[in-house]
Amino acid sequence: MFSAQERVYDPSAGTEITCDKFEELLAILQSEEPLSTNSGSGEINRKVQPVDERKRRRMISNRESAKRSRLRKKRWLENLTEEVNRLSFENRELKNRLDIVLRYGNDVSRENNRLKTESVCLKIRLLKLYRVLINMQKSHT
């Protein structure tokens, strides 16, 4: 590729490296073997390892966060279920009370109508009695 004496500029490090070193690094990057510090590329290994470690820690953190989120959602859903049950019970109780009040109101309304009818009948009877009394007084005079 290059002669051994040629140097290549490494922009990431801001220095020049020999072609031998460049080819060695290129071979390491192209290989499927994991990087190790014994290959003479300790600097690359130190750069890759923190990225992998950060990635691993981030993945663990994301899993824990997702687990906490699922637990929060589960508690939220349980609370909603409890509230639905409580409100359903309260609704049944209120319906029962309303039914009792409506029945009582109907009973009172029927009794009121009966008393009105009785009152009208008594007024008519009273009028008839007044007429009888007036007729009796006329006949005695």
Rank of each mutant, 00 (worst) to 15 (best):
M1T: 07
F2L: 07
F2M: 11
F2I: 06
S3W: 12
E6K: 09
P11S: 05
G14H: 07
G14A: 02
G14L: 00
C19P: 01
F22T: 01
E23G: 01
E24M: 04
L25P: 00
L26N: 06
I28V: 09
L29N: 02
Q30S: 08
P34M: 08
L35V: 07
L35D: 02
T37P: 06
G40K: 01
I44D: 01
Q49P: 00
P50R: 11
P50D: 08
R56Q: 15
M59N: 15
R63V: 05
E64C: 14
E64R: 15
S65E: 13
S69M: 03
R70Q: 08
R70P: 00
K74W: 09
R75I: 02
E78A: 05
E78C: 03
L80I: 03
R86V: 01
E90P: 01
L94P: 02
K95Y: 04
N96I: 06
R97K: 05
I100L: 12
L102N: 13
R103G: 08
R103D: 06
G105N: 15
V108F: 01
R110C: 04
N112P: 01
L115W: 00
T117W: 01
L122E: 07
K123L: 03
I124T: 10
R125P: 00
K128I: 01
R131I: 06
V132L: 12
V132K: 12
I134T: 13
N135C: 11
M136L: 15
Q137Y: 06
S139V: 09
S139G: 00
H140G: 04
